[in-house]
Design a protein around this nucleic acid. Sequence first.
RNA 1: UCCUCGGUAGCUCAGUGGCAGAGCAGUUGACUGUUAAUCAAUUGGUCGUAGGUUCGAAUCCUACCCGGGGAGCCA
Length: 498
Amino acid sequence: MTYIKQLADHQDEIVTLKGWVYNSRSSKALHFIELRDGSGLCQCIVSLDEVGEEIFEAAGTLKQESSVEISGKVVKDDRSVGGYELHATDVKILQVAENYPITPKDHGVEFLMENRHLWLRSQRQWAAMQVRNTIQFAIHQFFQKEGFIRMDAPIFTGNAAEGTTTLFETDYFDEKAYLTQSGQLYGEAMAMAHGKIYTFGPTFRAEKSKTRRHLTEFWMVEPEMAFYDLDMNMDLAESFIRFIVKSVLDKHENELNILQRDTTLLKKTADEPFKRISYTEAVEQLKSDETRKLLETMEKDRKEELGSIKNELEEIKKEHGSAKKWRKAQIDQRIKEIHARIDQVEEDLRNIPVWKESAANFEWGNDFGGSDETILTMQYDTPVLVHRYPAEVKAFYMKRDPEDEKLALALDVLAPEGYGEIVGGSQREEDIDVLKERIAEHDLPEDLFSWYLDLRKYGSVPHSGFGLGIERTVAWICGLSHVRETIPFPRMLGRLRP
RNA sequence: UCCUCGGUAGCUCAGUGGCAGAGCAGUUGACUGUUAAUCAAUUGGUCGUAGGUUCGAAUCCUACCCGGGGAGCCA
């Protein structure tokens, strides 16, 4: 048995491929069967002269996603997907599939999500999962080569701590338990045992967020390092992200191509240092004339675009009545595109004034909203590291800036191209008295944190860490517009099946 | 929870008060190199649900259900 991605090594040999029919076309004496086997796509040509009537007819019954074994000669042909095709000598049918719901045409999100278990077979979804795998592997490679130990934090936790987010509550033998929202506190304990550790697992948030950036169950990798300060933490985050992007660029030209990902900015991310700005600088930038002009230009561009596509719509609608059939199809397609674009542009036009307002009136001390992040990152080509946030909007365990008590030694990494926050982290407070004070200030029950406070009793050291969201990272690197396509079976508001 | 857009054939959509439509998929046939093949024929409908207005409702009104995008919150 040979896999499609190995075909280049078997030119002119007879091999057997096992897989599923991705698409097929037929004429009187030829069937073109596009086969997928999980490693790639290959067009198989079944010719009446080569295989005889019986096999030829059987091959004609194959429908989308039927399972088959096809033997034949590997022939280089640039016309074919992947550069090689198979001239069949034999076709063994395992099962002729029933009518497959996902056709090679467009489908809506709801339908595709209902059929997620099948959608995973489609090219773009396949490519995204291949990249996800490489990202996860690169994460392990990076930390392992840097001397980190992977340790796992528990998924059930006894406390709904950290205060802010809503957690999933479960019954744990008549006791309340919560699904973890972060492994970080445990990570700190493990770092005190091993120096440098990382956790990698699912996390859960019961927030009713319905956006392209949110899942209720998502994967997060969280390194935690003893004796690291904020600067070391930022250096690590930067080289970590760069390593991941490089790994994907090295291995996945084909997949990024399938995803139609423009890799210009990813290449910049792999090569250029990231911008680092403080929260205070970011606020100044938001309120700057530059930002205002940027948004005004954007608004003007959108208005012009709206005018011109609406004109085009009118014109092709007039043409539609008298058009020939093929042109009608072309027009229908274009009308669909225009409607979708109009929706998008109109939404932008509703949003831009709000964004402008939000940016211009931003007050020091608030946390950035989604639009503020978008506006900030629009002005950079690579990820931006934003550091030293107002302590009030950040978690209790973050260490304050010794040079300005109002600031926490926090860092966020904002991905470019509108993908938003992919990393959040900080240097941690190591002084037990200060930490106790913070717990009290946040109205958190101190007894639940007794084990956490112990870490500051017995050899407390400066330490830092951060968390990187896998799905947002996959979305950014793949250029996907929604995190639901970055995980095999996304869990989100209103979606528990399949 | 709030704002906003939507729900019409298996799928994607058009149809804004007067006979329920198209493309694709399916089915039947034609075609020796197709790339979402093409061409011809053909099957397919509880217009999200319930009520209301009207001579007449997919279309107008009300309520509800479901989905998309966004706010808040966050990775």
